[in-house]
Every structure is written in structure tokens, then in C-alpha cells.
Design a protein around this nucleic acid. Structure first.
Lengths: 160, 160, 160, 160
DNA sequence: TTTT
DNA sequence: TTTT
């Protein structure tokens, strides 16, 4: 749509180590879940309450995926900037269901490590992502293979 | 979780008029779907492609809900700032499913009309939302009724 | 710095037509000012008040610059996503001063037209910006000339 | 302006301890500078380059100010969400100058501590900011004194 | 300098 | 003035 914006910004911690999956196109995705939580004082009881939300993040960019795979672990704190995408999948009982994910695409999105143990950053900048740590070879976005809709080619039906 | 951020920013158009629903708590919610879309040139065919995403937006803030009800219509362009929330619901076949929504809560979020026909804005500012049009009475946030988790009390199981 | 984020999101109207300038490097920048405003009810008098802020936006990306030049005019409503940058300049009296701008860089940022008259969008996606209108030739980001710090080579000292 | 958005999101480190200042209205502001930086590989030399930006953050919300004063120190990593504001001030030579700041206002903005040493969060939610650490008394936003434009009453002319 |  |  002309003139639309679809942006999600999360700061939270990974619930588990990232998972790497292969697509039929040959590309890979790296995915993980990020927890965010709200805390508030209950209006009537005065109790402290907390509600945690889990967000499924999927990375389609090869370089950011490598960095996620290399540096993110269960418990890592990250800044994620991606797009909201809802897709269909077929569950184990053969029923079609929806799953909504935060997608860091091939040419859009951001991933920044916030852990003090060695924060790094990886974004779409300059002639390639600015990676502060690690020695991954630089690759210009435009030369990366795979199409934008390659995520439709995921090998499996179970989303997570 | 200490130190987390959960933010969604959308600019898009409503697919239908907003829907108003009552909660058992007596409060109301106003909800609607917003379309955003990406366009790109297919890498191999060179074709122009477009993918539309639909986002379910739910407003729990009374004042913003009133404004949405009053000024938003099918086709309206809006700026929405809310939080990602995934909740369970039971579908018509009795199966438990997940639905992810962009929630404009009682004390957090933003809604801005972008239509030239009379853009308005409604946010949590000053002593109440700054409403540029309409004559809705001002209500200080802290005096609004209902609790943060009142959305769990929705009257029905079908999410949209 | 490892793990940093610098992001500005604006929705507002242009005060004047965009200005195009040439850099010594041969590249061009397109810049314009965007107005945003807050309205609120004065706590004591109850009066409706409004405060307008002007934001200087500078585009270093050739394609987005072309689109801005082509489609943005005085009064146009836009969504801008850029980075905050403060730089020194020498004013007409020879004094060094600071100017803070919202920069849409070569490989980062977003510009979306929100006018009903023909909203368009132009972002860093896929193999080039997704331009919904106009016929500007597609150019892959990695092939664009000029360096990231080329903005230091602006031909003149007066920032706006 | 009807339908405008003015939002800055920063993740970075404080260059010094926060500074507390009193306003003639009796309120206080807490301010500090946050550094963000970009790194990239120079296109011609291949050298690793880095450019740091400093952002002036000013907090007008009493509760968030207290938290900043209590928990932020030189080197602390924070997530800041505020508004861009440019104001005039008179420098030591009597010249009028502009300074642009990221303002966390009375009813708008966010501050989240990202340090592993004990991340906390403080936002405008529910009946008061959700503070995960510290024992600051809760205060409902609507009961806080001072007006939105009280920042115009700053006691001094020198901005930082 | 915009817009409402 | 931070951080890596």
C-alpha cells in the first residue's frame, strides 16, 4: 500500500538459544523468542502484577542470522526492529492456523545486542551491516541471494 | 521483565469501520484492522509484487476508543502506536488458538488520524489526550476505571 | 558504540518545498523542514494551547532524494524515519554553531508520503527502494557512489 | 498540528552522571547526555570508522527524573523514548542560539535501564510508572504539579 | 515555514 | 562525556 509503515521495536531477553532452519531455496532463517513484560500495581488490591509476552522473531537476512546464531543465547538481551507478519501454517492435526511473527527481512530491520558481556550491533548500513564484533565477511545486500518471498518456501509446517 | 520494550508502529488504512464491544467490566473496546503493504520488484522476473498484511488493533482506552469510533471509517489512514499482545481464544470448533493484536492500552499508545479530510490526533499527553477535534470531555488517565488486565474479561471468545 | 540505537520518527507537514544542494563529492542532498505540534489544555486557564516544532530533515540517499524532490511540496504530509545528527557550522558572523538534523542516510531511513493526493512510499527494501509511484530507475544500494561521511563535504557553511 | 508524530528512540550510554536542576515553578528536571555511534567500513580505504553522536536528554516527569537520578550513572546504558524539541538560549557572549534536546515530558516518554547490573523500567503505564526496582512512592501522573510549558521557566540560560 |  |  502506498504510504504504509509496519514496524515493531522490542527490547527483551531470549527464552532459548536461537534456532537455525534451512529453506528449500537454500537460504537459512534464524529464529528465537523474545520476552517482554509489563508490571503494574493492581488498582483494587494494590498488588504488584506482571504480564509477560513472548514474541517470535525470524531473521531472513543472512548476515544478521549469522550474528544471531553466533552471539545470541538463552537469556541474551536484544534490541530488535522488524516487521509484523502473519502467515498460515498447518498444525499437527492438519488444521490451518495463523502465526504472527516479527520479521527481520533481507533489506530491512535491525538487531542489536544489549548484553554488557559484549554488546554488538548489526544493521543495514553503509556497504553492509556494521558488525562490531566477529569476523564475518562483509556482503553487500544487493548481492545476497534469495527472494523476498522465499520465506514461503520454509521446509516445514510447524512454526516453532 | 526489567528493562523491556514492546512497541508497534503502524501507518495504514482501515479495512472496515471500527467495531465496538462491551466487556463484562463495563468498559468498552474499539477494534479494527489496519492494512500495510510492501511492494518490491521480483528478483528473477522483474515483476512488481505486493504483499499486504492485516493487523488487528484493539483500543482499551476509553477516550481513544471514542475518537476511533467517531472519526475512523473503512479506508481511513491512521498512525497507530501500541503493544504486541498474543492471547488465547476458543474458536467455533472449540479449539484453543492464538491471536496476536496491537493493543492501545489504558495508559500507553497513540492514535493519529492522517486523513486530509480532517486529521486529528489523540495521545496520552498533558492532563489528558490531546484531541484536536471533537468535543469529548477530558478525563484524566488516573481517574479512568477498569484495570489493566480487564481485557481478559472480554465477553466473547471470537476475536474478530 | 556497540549496541546503540539512534532513531527519529516524524509525521508532519513540510513548511516549504524541498531544497536540493550539491556536495563537492558530486552527490546531492535534498532537505526540508517538517512541522509537528503538540496541543494541550492549559492546567490553570483551561485554554487550548499549541506548540509547533520544526525539524530539519536531510536526505543523503540519491533515490529517496529524487522522490522527495519530485513528490514533496510545501504542505505535504510525510512519515520520516532517520537518525539524529548534530554538526558544527559557521554562521554568517563567523561563529561556530551547532545544528541538529534528522538524517536519512544512504543505507538507513525511510520516507513515506501520506498525502491522499497520491501517497507513495520509498524505503530501503528488496533490491532497491519500493517506490509506488513515479518511474525512477531502480538502483541497488551497494552500487551507489559517495561515502558515508561525504556529508562533511557540503559546499557551504550555512545549514538552512 | 493535527496528525503529527514526534518521536525519538535512543539506546546508548551516559557520558556523565545525570544533572538535576530546579525550575522557577518548583519542579525539577534531570538531564544527561547519551552517546550513540555508527561504525562502517570506509568505501575506499577499507578502514573501520566510527562516528559518535551525543544527544541531550531532559526529563520533565518527576517520577522518571527521580529514577534517572537514583539509578543512572556515567556509563549506564539506557533506552530513551522522547520528543525532539529545539529551543533558544542565550550563550555566555549574549548571543541567541538553538539547542535541540530529546525531551521526556510529563505525560509522554519512556526510560528503561538496560544495564545488566539491575535493569529497571519506568514508563507511563497504569496508575503510574512501572518501576521494577527502587522504592519510590507511586504518584499518578494527573496529580503531578507544573504545566506542560513549565520548561520555559528554566532558571538559567545555559543549556548544558 | 506547515497543518488543524 | 559513554561504550566496544
Amino acid at each position: 500500500m502506498a504510504g504504509s509503515v509496519n514496524k515493531v521495536i522490542l527490547v527483551g531477553n531470549l527464552g532459548r538459544d536461537p534456532e537455525v532452519r534451512s529453506m528449500q531455496s537454500g537460504g537459512r532463517t534464524v529464529s528465537f523468542s523474545v520476552a517482554t513484560s509489563e508490571t503494574w500495581n493492581d488498582r483494587t488490591t494494590g498488588e504488584r502484577k506482571e504480564k509477560t509476552q513472548w514474541h517470535r522473531v525470524v531473521i531472513f537476512n543472512e548476515k544478521l542470522g549469522e550474528i544471531a546464531e553466533k552471539y545470541l543465547r538463552k537469556g541474551s538481551k536484544v534490541y530488535v526492529e522488524g516487521q509484523l507478519e502473519t502467515r498460515k501454517y498447518t498444525d499437527k492435526d492438519g488444521n490451518e492456523r495463523d502465526i504472527t511473527e516479527v520479521v527481520i527481512g533481507r533489506f530491512k530491520g535491525d538487531l542489536t545486542l544489549l548484553d554488557s558481556r559484549g554488546g554488538g550491533t548489526a544493521e543495514f548500513e553503509d556497504e553492509g551491516p556494521a558488525v562490531q564484533r566477529g569476523s564475518a565477511a562483509r556482503t553487500a545486500p544487493a548481492r545476497q541471494g534469495g527472494g523476498w518471498d522465499s520465506r514461503r518456501e520454509l521446509d516445514d509446517d510447524i512454526p516453532f
